[in-house]
């Protein structure tokens, strides 16, 4: 079996994310990192490979992102992907969810994987949508928020929590599975894996290489324009207590509760 894992570079969790007023897009100037939720997808692929229930020949990490986004691919490789593919092209800048999903589907088609894995959400756009969009463009069944899955022959049995409890769903391969953050504990890469990551094959492609139609991607090919950013009404900041002396802390909590007749 061949697995493709979709990964995205996002602003590091420690960076205060902001919209660049001149472009109306996310300011991507600061420190960046592999989307944390994508680590769950890579870990799921690696566990499948190590588990041996099905032979996994190859894990390919795929991203669409500007120069520099190869760092996310290096990290993906250090976590267990065998090689990686990066779509870098000015034409895709500013793509919305549907345009991004279309471009990713084209990159996936070049690889013909049996299974496409991705994270439950990106830490910046948070659309929770790419998995279903990619599945639709590929004509593959797609499931999101999967917290457990098993592969048997050409069938995947997956579990996920939906609005009425846990659902168990079966899909035929090839399929798209977006995993929830509860599916596993991603491992830390070894120093050796980090050092070796840059030596693994990384293929850079343009939209022409992938057969992506220019008018379906980028800001021009997108079906949505986001703007008119406003600040929501702020709830008055709560009181904060740093717990240095726990006895004193709980005394303050009890007084606070007492004042509000909650005790």
């Amino acid at each position: 079996m061949k697995i493709a894992v979709l990964v995205k570079e996002v602003p590091d969790a420690a960076v205060e994310k902001r919209i660049d007023p001149s472009t109306g897009r996310l300011d991507r100037a600061g420190e960046k990192n592999l989307n944390p939720y994508d680590q769950n997808a890579i870990e799921a692929a690696v566990q499948l490979k190590e588990g041996g229930a099905v032979p996994v020949e190859e894990i390919v990490a795929i991203t669409m992102g500007p120069e520099g986004a190869e760092r996310a691919l290096h990290k993906a490789v250090s976590l267990g992907a065998d090689r990686s593919v990066q779509l870098t092209d000015d034409a895709v800048a500013g793509s919305d969810v549907v345009a991004t999903g279309y471009a990713l589907a084209k990159l996936i088609e070049r690889e013909s994987p049996d299974l496409v894995l991705l994270g439950q959400q990106s830490d910046d756009g948070e659309s929770y949508a790419i998995g279903a969009v990619v599945g639709e463009f590929l004509g593959f069944p797609a499931l999101t928020q999967v917290s457990k899955f098993d592969v048997s022959g050409s069938t995947i049995t997956a579990e996920r929590q939906a609005e009425y409890g846990y659902d168990t769903v079966e899909v035929d391969l090839p399929a798209v599975i977006s995993v929830s953050d509860a599916i596993n504990e991603p491992r830390y890469p070894s120093l050796k894996a980090i050092m070796g990551a840059k030596k693994k094959p990384l293929e850079k492609v343009t939209i022409a290489d992938a057969g992506i139609e220019a008018d379906k991607v980028g800001a021009a090919g997108s079906k949505i324009e986001c703007g008119n950013f406003t600040e929501p009404p702020k709830k008055a900041a709560g009181e904060i207590i740093e717990d240095e002396d726990t006895a004193a802390t709980v005394e303050k909590i009890v007084a606070w509760l007492d004042e509000r007749k909650l005790i």
């Binding site: 969009v133 928020q145 939906a162």
Partner: peptide, 23 residues
């Protein structure tokens, strides 16, 4: 919203060529 709302909405947007907004 919910889980299925996200999946159906995203699939539909791709199929009919619509823009999509979540949340």
């Amino acid at each position: 919203g919910g889980l299925l709302g996200f999946e159906i909405g995203a699939g539909l947007a791709a199929r009919v060529g619509a823009g999509i907004t979540a949340e």
